[in-house]
């Protein structure tokens, strides 16, 4: 009796702590007043201004484009890593392979961003490419650090998954490639989708690495938002937050839907 009361209180307080700031943000996005903190009345004014703000809309389109492309590349390469680590025995310099595929998970973004920027500058000095930084360099950097997240999901899925099905198919005359495309990939498809969604969100949300590797014509949404709220508050960003949080939470729910399938 007493312990269940403690339990409910802890869970309630924990969830309150997690959701309260999000609710505050959404609440203030409906404030008519230009001064964010002084409540003047309910209004959709800032949503209207948001949709007429070309800078934000443009950066949003750039961000979506980069996120979709880098998530796709990262998923392809991440699936290959996950598959190699679980199913392929002979990997030359395996420790180095594990090092390369897991370090981006723990490396502070700032260090990763700096190393990518210095790499692109050096590359340009040697082969004259990329002559300036922009969407392409952000894309390459995002693929690089999203690969690890996809790989870890796929690795977990393949470790759980019963190898006998693959072996049975092989006994029935399927060759290696056919087993992969007809059996293994379809079974892990939900995890592949989950991995793609995770990579997409990480790329969409990244500020630090993008700030290092950006160039003319490649201001992503987080870069624009950060420049607006670094020193103060912005009512347009409040409206943007409400929309973006809603959209991202929906993506998160899809992720759980797909990732749940692999547990059964």
């Amino acid at each position: 009796m007493k312990s269940s009361l403690i339990k409910s209180t802890v869970i309630f307080l924990g969830l309150f702590f997690l959701y309260f700031p999000i609710l505050v943000l959404i609440f203030y996005s409906f404030n008519e007043n230009k001064r964010v903190m002084v409540w003047k009345g309910f209004s959709l004014r800032w949503y209207n201004e948001l949709f007429n703000n070309e800078q934000i809309i443009e950066s949003f389109i750039i961000s979506i484009k980069i996120a979709a492309l880098s998530a796709t590349f990262a998923t392809i390469l991440g699936v290959m890593i996950g598959y190699s680590l679980v199913r392929i025995r002979k990997i030359p310099f395996k420790s180095f392979y594990i090092f390369l595929s897991s370090t981006p998970l723990v490396l502070p973004e700032l260090i990763l961003g700096l190393s990518m920027l210095l790499f692109f500058i050096s590359l340009n000095n040697v082969i004259g490419f990329p002559s300036s930084r922009g969407q392409l360099t952000i894309f390459i950097s995002h693929v690089t650090f999203c690969i690890a997240f996809v790989a870890i999901i796929i690795q977990a899925r393949l470790t759980d998954f019963n190898k006998n099905i693959e072996e049975a198919a092989m006994d029935l005359g399927y060759n290696y490639t056919k087993v992969l495309y007809k059996i293994t990939l379809p079974i892990i498809l939900p995890s592949i989708i989950a991995g793609w969604l995770l990579a997409f969100t990480i790329s969409l949300d990244d500020l630090v690495v993008a700030s290092f590797t950006t160039g003319p014509g490649a201001n992503t949404l987080p870069i624009v938002v950060f420049s607006k709220v670094r020193l103060g508050l912005s009512p347009e960003v409040n409206a943007l937050s409400a929309i973006l949080m809603f959209a991202l939470i929906i993506i998160g729910l899809f992720y759980f839907y797909f990732n749940k399938k692999f547990k059964h």
Binding site: V24, L204, L207, F226, V229, N238, S241, M245, L248, G252
Partner: peptide, 17 residues
């Protein structure tokens, strides 16, 4: 789920609070 919503905006929320 809150972890899925934008990192930058969650920090910004505390600026408001």
């Amino acid at each position: 789920i809150p972890f899925w919503s934008s990192f930058l905006l969650r920090v910004y929320a505390w600026k408001i609070i």
